[in-house]
Design a protein around this nucleic acid. Structure first.
Lengths: 340, 340
DNA sequence: GTGTTTTTCCAAAGCGCTTTGGGTTACGAT
DNA sequence: ATCGTAACCCAAAGCGCTTTGGAAAAACAC
């Protein structure tokens, strides 16, 4: 059933039916009702290609899907994607994912030229990210999940990573910890860099700036790395008594390392991690329950999608920036350091 | 740059340029070369909406993205999706993901009516899956990742889950184990049901059909459940000496339970899991390294996408079915049972 | 040289929708 | 009765592409 058939069936012109369905003003309420009902009844849906062609807009959001095996954020990405998909779907937008290996340039070029997407979503921004300039050049509206260094304004939603880790570190300091290590994600990415800043700020405020007993390491956020890093850090002398982990998965590894070294989480070593609220990684089920700075990454995806759609429909960039504060959830993995 | 401009620029008709670009026969080789080069040079890409409208095909694959938080296969799904996206992209197809909560019917209806996707991909089929009938009714080509019960033929790619678990179970039996438990995924899903069958078959062959000392349990494949299930099973008397896990994540939990009970993997309890080859869950990094039946789920995604595209371009269903055998990778988590 | 086929190209007709730029009709105001 | 003014509706023109059904040119056969 297409528009022509539907309007013939109704004895109205295509124009009227189209306008009735799209909420234009100059359609009598009674007519509109009839049209909407009929459309509903026969299950009419406008052909997406035709609408795309006529309006020049695709009612779709684009996102590059990095399919390299080394994708650091694998589990985070899908949760983020779920959020994006959820609001996109809610607002009648499709979500077109395009695979990329290495650079995403080609994907964005294609989105722009074929008008496959009205706006694109950028995730996992690096501290210096070439993609921003590219997208600006292409004139393709985009929303960044996270932040990056650029002179131009850009739509983004982020969480206060710096504040979160500052607060987490300060908690440990207030409890009396003096040797606090950071197990971070890839510091080429902004979120990791920001967390490092937060950690450093708190240390500096406590007079521990660049203290060699407060070491750090970074890398892919896997359980395996969490284990390796924690083990390396805890085998130093003096060993840190506090561990800040950039993800729950890293914390899983850290827990394992701590146990393997014959130590106890909470008593010998306090652990705090950032929790993106992944459904299969539940920090409170650990023993002892893991203290976290918590911010559901899915919510981020939802907001990004919302921004992207608003951007595609004319909202100005400077109204589309948001940085959410992060909660600190205090649980049993944190305690005052043993008085030795 | 659109087709009209490009053809004007070349001094040719739109028809000729279009046909040259789309590989039709009736274009002189020299002309075609000129056209292709010019298109390349100016970066011409056909407008996807226009092409969609003209051809009735969207050059896109559709997939429903279950965004419910209870999505069991979360980490598996993205890896699968990565495979799908990779080959789709390679062959010039877009991938449209549509979020669903609960039933996917509405999504498929929309795909069919708006012709948003030329074929759809069905993942995680249940033993009895209503979606199959729906899609058949809608006339929307589809490929299933996995299998299901239905009288009609349908395109699918699957792995030999039954064979894999039969083989895994038989390995334990051959080593002398007599009490082998199964920790399975949700048995509403075919893959889990098949694995159970494989386990049962091997037990039956060894004269252990329905042996009460060979218990099983099933549920969402999380670390947490792995722990709970393993713990429950191992606290029975007599306790099983072999554990078959439906995912590496479950095995992670099982390892933890075994340790917590003061037992040792390999020596006291042998563990085998199915490994979908998720990048952040590496079975060989466990201690001891985990024996697995291994089959990269990403490869499955790739093949499904390939089938879907072939299906959309006219290949017959009965040529689009494949069930891959599964490797058994023997590692340190398996040994003969302690002779007590 | 004429008739026939093959090769190469093109004009024009859609695909199904939105949107422009009027037309009609109805109705209150003059 | 006449004139605006809303309110409602429509015909027709695209959007950028593919594809049908030739036409013109070239190649071949006789």
């Amino acid at each position: 059933m297409n528009l022509r058939e539907l309007s013939a069936h109704l004895g109205l012109s295509q124009t009227t039916v189209s306008r009735a369905l799209n909420g234009y003003a100059d359609v009598a309420p009674a007519t509109r009702r009839k049209v909407v009902e009929a459309a509903e009844r026969v299950g009419y849906r406008p052909n997406s290609g035709a609408r795309r062609l006529a309006t020049g807009r695709s009612q779709a959001l684009g996102i590059a899907f990095p399919v390299d095996r080394n994708l650091l954020l694998d589990p985070h990405f899908i949760e983020f994607l779920a959020g994006v998909a959820a609001t996109a779907g809610e607002k009648g937008y499709d979500l077109t994912v395009s695979p990329t290996t290495g650079t995403e340039d080609e994907v964005y070029r294609r989105f722009a030229r074929t008008r496959t997407a009205d706006a694109v979503i950028l995730s996992g921004p690096a501290v210096e990210d070439r993609r921003i300039a590219l997208l600006n050049g292409l004139g393709l509206p985009f929303v960044v999940h996270g932040r990056t260094q650029t002179p131009l304004p850009y739509a983004h939603v982020d969480i206060d990573n710096r504040g979160a880790f500052r607060q987490a570190c300060r908690l440990l300091l207030d409890l009396g910890h003096r040797r606090i290590a950071l197990i971070n994600g890839d510091e080429g990415q902004t979120f990791a860099r920001d967390r490092r800043s937060g950690w450093q700020e708190a240390l500096a405020q406590a007079g521990l700036a660049d203290d060699p007993d407060c070491p750090s390491c970074c890398g892919a956020m896997t359980e395996e790395n969490g284990y390796r890093f924690a083990r390396t850090l805890l085998e130093r002398t003096p060993a840190p008594t506090g561990l800040l982990c950039s993800s729950v998965l890293l914390a899983f590894g850290a827990y394992r390392a701590i146990r393997d070294l014959g130590l106890t989480v909470g008593r010998d070593v306090s652990v705090i991690a950032h929790d993106d609220d992944l459904p299969f990684l539940r920090p409170h089920t650990l023993d002892p329950p893991l203290t976290v700075t918590r911010s559901p990454i899915r919510k981020g995806g939802e907001q990004v999608a919302d921004f992207a759609i608003r951007l595609a429909t004319g909202t100005l960039i400077d109204q589309l920036t948001d940085v959410k504060p992060v909660d600190l959830v205090y649980r049993g993995s944190v305690a005052a350091p043993a008085s030795g």
